[in-house]
Computed example of a mutant assay.
Amino acid sequence: MVKIGLTGGIATGKTTISKYLASLGIKVIDADLIAREVLDLYPEILSYLRRTYGDRVFSDGKLDRKALGRIVFQNKEALSRYLQVIMPRIRQEIEKRLEKSEEEFIILDAPLLFEEGFQKDVDLTITVYAQKKVQLERLKKRDGFTEEEARRRISAQMDLKDKMDRSTYVLNNSGRIEDTILDLHAILDKIGFKDEKKDKEKK
């Protein structure tokens, strides 16, 4: 089994790459999806949020993720405290799913791959990169952020250069997605993944 850690900064296109890899038949363990699931699996997380923020992060009794994001991504201490509560449960679920997997190739899609030490659980890593100006434009267009909000959200994360320096491979997604996919396939070829659909098309 080859375990691949996939990470990147906000609005770099990591999710697009992750979905494309899944379309090739590669199993993807999505840390963001697990982060949502643990809220149901471990009620103490929601209890912590209600005790800490009250109704500010709830709407009709349900967690308002955007409201929570506006709070924790504007305050590094608040983000750190939240991660201390939720991350042990996310790690628990990720490790459980990695152990159960029997596929030849598996992707761990984790925004906090390096920040939380998940690179130790995989064999190699890929960081999806985009120029900061591209990130800013995508964030403003996608989420309706102001320039200041977009910059704040980017600065709340580990510097992309640090992630790139620590990665086995870097995938530049600043331009056309078609070019990024070609570069991705070059990486997949290097690690021994054969795209059966592509091979059939050639024949």
Rank of each mutant, 00 (worst) to 15 (best):
L188P: 00
A35M: 04
A67T: 11
L184T: 06
E104C: 07
G69C: 08
R51Q: 05
I126H: 04
I107T: 04
G8D: 06
H185C: 05
A78E: 15
G8A: 08
K133Y: 09
R97K: 14
Q119V: 06
A110M: 10
K194S: 12
V38L: 09
L124N: 12
E95K: 14
S80L: 14
L6N: 01
S101A: 15
A150C: 03
T125Q: 10
R153C: 00
Y53P: 00
G13K: 03
F193N: 00
P88N: 06
G8I: 05
D32W: 05
I181H: 03
R176F: 11
K198H: 13
L171V: 09
T52W: 00
F118P: 01
I4H: 01
Q74H: 15
N75E: 07
L171F: 11
S167V: 03
K132S: 06
T127E: 12
I71M: 12
T125Y: 11
T125E: 10
H185T: 08
K76W: 08
E37P: 07
D195K: 02
L136E: 02
A78C: 07
T180M: 13
L136G: 00
V134K: 13
R56N: 11
A31K: 03
Q84G: 15
R56M: 02
P111R: 05
L184N: 06
M87F: 14
S174W: 04
R153G: 00
E201T: 11
S80P: 04
F58L: 10
L6E: 01
I4W: 04
S101D: 15
D60G: 06
R91L: 08
D159N: 15
I86G: 06
E103A: 14
D30F: 05
L41G: 07
G25W: 08
D109A: 05
N75L: 05
R153V: 00
I34R: 01
E103S: 14
Y169W: 15
T16L: 12
E93K: 14
L182W: 14
K27Y: 06
L188R: 02
A67F: 07
I4T: 05
D64Q: 07
L160M: 12
D195N: 14
R36S: 06
I106N: 04
D179T: 09
K3G: 00
K62Y: 10
K132N: 09
F193L: 09
G54V: 00
I191R: 04
T15A: 04
L33V: 13
S18E: 01
G144Q: 10
G175H: 09
Q84N: 14
G144F: 07
D159P: 10
F118Q: 02
I34V: 14
F145R: 00
I45P: 00
L39A: 02
R142V: 11
V170R: 04
M164D: 03
F118C: 07
Y53S: 01
E102Y: 12
I10S: 03
E99A: 15
R65Q: 11
Y42E: 10
A156S: 15
L83I: 09
T12Y: 03
L46E: 12
G9M: 02
Y82W: 15
F105Y: 15
I29Q: 01
L124H: 10
